[in-house]
Every structure is written in C-alpha cells, then in structure tokens.
C-alpha cells in the first residue's frame, strides 16, 4: 500500500499533558504508558509543547561535566535538582512550539523529520488541535512494508 499517509498509521489517542501537570505526574504517565514523550496542550487542545523522557531526566539527573566532557556526580547538585524537580511542572521543562505533523502528510516525510530531529513521537494536529500521535516504530513498519511491496 504505497503513498500511505499519517492518517493510516497514527494512533488516535489524546493522552496529553497540560503546562500545569507536575513533572512527577508526567513521569508516572510515561512509566505506565511505556512511552518516551507526550504532547502538551492548552485548554483548546492546541499543541503548545512536547515533553520527552529526556526532558525529565535532564530535570532530575544529578550530573555535571568536567573539562574533558566526562559526567561527574555532584552531590550538592543532586540535592538541589531533587528539591526543584519535586515542585516542577511541565511548563518549566517542555519544548515549546514543537514540530507537529498533519494527517495528510506522507509517511516518508514524517520519517525524515523523525530522523533529523531525533524524535520518536510526533503529535498529529488538525488546525493545530491534537488528534493523535504518530510514533517511529509505526512509521518504520509502514516504510518497510511499502519497500517490500514495491
């Protein structure tokens, strides 16, 4: 089935975060859903951000680099980050104005975006409003199927 579009492979799920969701709650959701990121939406369901598990790790990871680029444990930093993360909300760590795709886009172009932007999940929007997500595994499967069929 060549020329498949996002609409053919997207997951019609509206699970999302709001800017006020606590980072702890977001981490809880990622863990339960076994997902690496979620869109952040406003009251009108417009996608205004994206929070990845990397953002959460960055928020709570107790690390710093030395001059040679090696990660060093800093126990003062550990305590500080743990304290600030416990009160943190998604707004503080999300990527604003994230890349989104539309349901009519072809899978090839979406895969390209995933590769260049190093992202596993992209929100799918219609007029800016979240209608689902597309993930890299589904895009990869679809591309492989198209490849073997052709």
């Amino acid at each position: 089935m060549p020329d498949r579009k996002v609409v053919d492979i997207m997951t019609r799920d509206l699970t999302a975060l709001t800017p006020e969701t606590s980072l702890q709650q977001a981490a809880h959701l990622f863990s339960l859903m076994r997902i690496s990121g979620l869109p952040v939406v406003d009251e009108q369901q417009r996608v205004i951000g994206f929070l990845s598990e990397a953002d959460i790790i960055d928020a709570i990871s107790p690390r710093s680099r030395d001059h040679s680029g090696i990660f060093l444990m800093d126990f003062g930093e550990i305590a500080r980050k743990m304290r600030s993360a416990s009160n943190a909300v998604v707004r503080d760590y999300m990527t604003e104005h994230p890349i989104t795709v539309e349901e009519s886009q072809d899978i090839g172009s979406v895969s390209e975006i995933m590769l260049t932007e190093h992202t596993k999940i992209l929100p799918v929007v219609r007029d800016g409003v979240l209608i689902g997500i597309v993930n890299r595994a589904d895009a990869c499967s679809a591309l492989m199927e198209d490849h073997w069929e052709s």
Partner: peptide, 30 residues
C-alpha cells in the same frame, strides 16, 4: 472519544479495539 481507567494487558486490548473501530482514546493507565 473514550476515556476512563485502563490497566495493563487487557487494558491495551480494549484501547486497541476501540481505536480499530475509529474511536479516539484517552485512558488514564493504572
């Protein structure tokens, strides 16, 4: 749009079945 609580295992089966029927899901996972 179907929402509610869903656990693991059978909960995923329920969500996938709903989506296969063209229903959008937004379950809170337990």
């Amino acid at each position: 749009t179907a929402m509610g609580f869903a656990g693991d295992g059978p909960g995923r089966f329920i969500q996938n079945s709903l989506r296969d029927a063209g229903i959008t899901t937004a379950f809170t996972l337990l």
